[in-house]
Simulated scan of single mutants.
Amino acid sequence: MDINNMTFFAELYNVRENPEVGMWLLYITVVILSIIVFKLGFARKLSLLKNIVIYSFLIFGCTILSLFAVGLPIIEGLMVAALILIIYKIRLKQERKQQGKEA
């Protein structure tokens, strides 16, 4: 991976000059956005043990994604996915509310 072609967030978190802190910030951002996207799009009511297992694997997978986030727009893609899912949830809620008024 070419270190000269860094993504916006890699530059924002100053990965080139301070790689340790910058990578931790990238990792935390990827984890938070991944959890948001998972909760909005895929999460179901599960037992506590199943949730622990799922989030453990999610956090482990974010380790790999944060390495890719230096040169690929991973965080930007997660932000777009979260935005689309938020809009979808809002529209779904409005539609259900309107169907409730009609019935």
Rank of each mutant, 00 (worst) to 15 (best):
E17C: 02
A82P: 02
L33A: 08
Y88V: 06
I74H: 00
K97E: 14
G22L: 04
Y13W: 06
M23H: 14
V37L: 08
M79D: 01
I32A: 13
F57L: 15
K39P: 00
P19G: 09
A82H: 03
K97D: 12
L72C: 00
Y88S: 05
K101R: 14
N14E: 13
Y27A: 06
G41R: 08
F60P: 01
I36K: 06
Y13A: 00
Q98L: 12
M6W: 03
M23C: 11
I35N: 00
L85F: 08
R91I: 13
I59F: 12
L83D: 04
T29C: 08
K89L: 12
S66T: 13
V80N: 03
F42C: 05
L12K: 13
L58W: 05
N4Q: 15
L67R: 10
V70T: 10
I84R: 02
V53Y: 04
V31N: 05
A43D: 09
Y27L: 12
L58H: 03
G77T: 05
K50F: 14
N5I: 08
E95D: 09
G61K: 10
D2Q: 09
F9Y: 15
L92E: 13
F60L: 15
F60V: 15
K101L: 15
G71T: 12
M23T: 02
V15P: 00
L67W: 10
G100A: 15
V21Q: 06
I32V: 13
I59S: 04
F68P: 00
L33M: 11
E76R: 05
A43Q: 12
F38E: 06
I87H: 01
V53Q: 10
N4V: 08
I28G: 01
N51Q: 14
M1C: 08
T7S: 12
L25Y: 07
G61S: 10
I86A: 11
L33R: 05
L48R: 10
E20H: 04
L72G: 02
E76G: 14
I35V: 14
G71F: 12
M6E: 10
V15H: 00
N4G: 02
Y88F: 11
G41E: 07
R91S: 07
E11N: 15
E95F: 09
N51S: 13
M6A: 15
A43W: 03
A69E: 00
E20M: 07
T29K: 07
V30P: 02
N51G: 09
A81G: 07
S56I: 09
G77I: 00
A69L: 09
L48E: 13
R96C: 03
